[in-house]
Write a protein that binds this DNA or RNA. Structure first.
Length: 419
RNA sequence: GGCAGGUUGCCCGAGCGGCCAAUGGGAGCUGACUGUAAAUCAGCCGGCAAUGCCUUCGCAGGUUCGAAUCCUGCACCUGCCA
């Protein structure tokens, strides 16, 4: 007998809260359970936090259960209340566009084959024609406002203000769970721990409306060693869309994982067996300098999101740009590929270095570029440049390529081409 | 509705007529050490055609040789009283 999926999830550090653990365990053991996880279109792409939910959904599917992946065509029009304050409402067109993009992203992480094939659903399908009177009578009646006010997000927002629109969000998400229970017998909703309140509200609604007992399971917030949220790359969220964050940049974010966290991330974000992860942990502890765990993590997660070809490209680019090898010794094809991964821009011969640093995106302004130079953190072809007036001309590789670097980790390429 | 106070750079928070692009802390960036890790120490941390110039201290106007600092109006927030 293999490990119970719930034990596996717990061992991987993927369980923050759940409803009655024993009942959930028994139901999961009894046979295929239909479960759902939802994604609201708040951006054109999903990000690392959503990835964790999708991977968790896949783990459950691999254990024989049936996933429903919900895209929030209606909830995305309303907006989940956040501590930071009222959201800006997006237009219906924008939300519809994002729903389409997110739908195609989620399809990559679950299987649509077999007895427990996944299904993608859109909550707009069952909310767009609901009329207000029915909604208030059938759904609203089950929500005591005094209980709603006790929720932490709502309480904090009472200080700064919250619209009726956002206050009502929880009713919509709860209605989704109820609807999916009625349509497909859905008996488990998963999500991030920040969704716990919304998820349990749905459990409660189903209990009141149908007298049925369904389950909820949440994953913990993924943090860095300092306790802050993990999932920011330089300049923004860790997007899954390669147009919004290059596979190289995605790979780099993972390979820079902290020692004290990398093993946790391996358990949470990869499908490696726990015994293998233990072996990697032991090996890393013995020879931390080799960064075995980080390399494996970056390769595994990048493969899941962008595919094996992009892993190879990112690894080769990283090896070329971070390796000990002399840049002059790299074949042009390797160097060009590496710089393309890192971000390659075209500039005129004789372009000032500071301008090239700005154009390449390594710094935000010329002032920042000059600062990088005076800090001793600007490099051209791995040679530190201390002259703030330096220009790019003679010293190129393969007749025109230049490797620009800021500090230890930020690399980009420039190609000198006569205009 | 009345009275009092607040709104400063990514965040917190000093400044209360010129010495203010604006103290300090956090975040961030760079350097040294190292392993594309952590910790520690040091520097940087609005922009530009850069020994100067431009834009910034809620918004709009005004006083003044000169304003983040004073005055008027507006918006939002907080506290006290009804």
């Amino acid at each position: 007998m293999t490990t119970h999926v719930l034990d596996d999830l717990e061992a991987r550090g993927l369980v923050a809260h759940s409803t009655d653990r024993d009942a959930l365990r028994a139901d999961l053991s009894a046979g295929p359970v239909t479960y759902y996880v939802g994604f609201d279109p708040t951006a054109p792409s999903l990000h690392m936090g959503n990835l964790l939910q999708l991977l968790t959904a896949r783990r459950l599917q691999l254990a024989g259960h049936k996933p429903l992946i919900l895209v929030g065509g209606s909830t995305g029009l309303i907006g989940d209340p956040r501590d930071v304050g009222e959201r800006t409402m997006n237009s219906r067109e924008t939300v519809a566009d994002w729903v389409g993009r997110i739908r195609s992203q989620v399809e990559q992480y679950v299987s649509f084959e077999g007895d427990n094939a996944a299904r993608v659903v859109n909550n707009l399908d069952w909310t767009k024609d609901v009329n207000v009177i029915d909604f208030l009578r059938d759904i609203g009646k089950h929500f005591p406002v005094n209980r709603m006010l006790d929720r932490q997000v709502v309480a904090s927002r009472l200080e700064t203000g919250i619209s009726y629109t956002e206050f009502s969000y929880v009713l919509l998400q709860s209605m989704d769970y109820l609807e999916l229970y009625r349509r497909y017998g859905t008996a488990l909703q998963t999500g991030g721990s920040d969704q716990w309140g919304n998820i349990t509200a749905g459990v409660e609604l189903i209990r009141r409306a149908e007298g049925a007992k369904v389950h909820a399971l949440s994953t913990p917030l993924i943090t860095k060693a300092d306790g802050t949220k993990f999932g920011k790359s330089t300049g923004g969220a860790l997007w899954l869309d390669p147009e919004m964050l290059s596979p190289y940049a995605f790979y780099q974010t993972w390979i820079q994982a902290e020692d004290s966290k990398v093993i946790e991330y391996l358990r949470q974000f990869t499908f490696l067996e726990l015994e293998e992860i233990e072996a990697i942990a032991a090996e890393s502890a013995e020879r931390p300098g080799l960064r075995i765990a980080q390399r494996r993590l970056a390769a595994e997660v990048t493969a899941l999101v962008h595919g094996q070809d992009e892993v190879r490209a990112a690894e080769q680019a990283s090896a070329a740009l971070f390796g000990r090898a002399e840049l002059e010794d790299l074949p042009e094809s390797t160097l060009r590929a590496a710089l393309t991964e890192a971000g390659l821009v075209t500039v005129d011969p004789g372009t000032p270095l500071v301008d090239a640093l700005v154009v390449s995106g390594l710094v935000d302004s010329k002032s920042a570029a000059r600062r990088a130079v005076s800090d001793g953190g600007a490099y051209v072809n791995n040679v530190r440049v201390e002259d703030p007036d330096a220009v790019l001309d003679g010293h190129t590789l393969h007749g025109g390529l230049v490797v620009l670097r800021k500090g230890k980790k930020s690399v980009a390429g420039a190609e000198l081409v006569k205009a």
